[in-house]
Amino acid sequence: MITVKVVEDKEELKQIFSIREEVFVKEQKVAREEEYDEFEEISTHFIATDEDGKPCGTARWRFTENGMKLERFAVLKSHRGRGVGQALVKAVIDNIKESPDSIGKKMYMHAQLPAVSLYSRFGFEKVGEQFEECNIMHYQMEMVNS
Rank of each mutant, 00 (worst) to 15 (best):
I2P: 12
I2T: 15
T3V: 14
V4P: 13
V6D: 07
V7T: 00
E8F: 00
E12V: 09
L13S: 11
L13R: 15
Q15M: 07
Q15W: 13
I16A: 08
F17Q: 15
F17Y: 13
I19M: 14
E22C: 08
E22P: 03
E22V: 06
V23L: 09
F24H: 11
E27H: 14
Q28K: 12
V30S: 02
V30C: 12
A31K: 14
E35I: 03
Y36H: 03
E38K: 15
E38R: 15
E40C: 10
T44A: 09
H45D: 11
H45N: 06
H45P: 11
F46D: 08
F46V: 07
A48L: 13
D50A: 10
E51N: 12
E51M: 09
E51C: 07
D52R: 15
D52N: 14
G53R: 11
R62I: 07
E65V: 02
E65W: 06
G67Q: 08
M68T: 10
M68C: 13
K69H: 11
L70T: 03
L70I: 13
R72N: 03
R72W: 04
F73N: 00
F73G: 00
A74S: 12
A74I: 01
A74M: 05
V75T: 14
V75R: 11
L76G: 13
L76V: 10
L76Q: 11
K77N: 09
H79W: 13
H79L: 03
R80L: 11
G81R: 08
G83W: 07
V84S: 07
G85Q: 04
K90I: 01
V92I: 00
V92S: 04
V92R: 01
I93P: 02
N95E: 14
N95L: 08
E98G: 11
P100S: 08
S102K: 00
S102E: 04
S102D: 04
I103Q: 09
G104L: 09
K106G: 05
K106M: 06
K106T: 08
M107R: 03
Y108W: 03
M109Q: 02
M109L: 10
H110W: 00
H110R: 03
A111T: 04
A111Q: 00
A111M: 01
Q112E: 10
P114G: 05
A115L: 12
V116K: 04
S117E: 10
R121K: 15
F122S: 08
F122I: 08
F124P: 02
F124D: 00
K126R: 12
V127Y: 07
G128V: 01
E129S: 14
Q130S: 09
E132W: 04
C134W: 08
C134L: 12
N135P: 05
N135H: 03
Y139Q: 05
Q140M: 04
Q140I: 08
M141S: 01
M141E: 01
M141H: 05
E142K: 14
E142S: 09
V144Y: 09
V144D: 04
V144E: 05
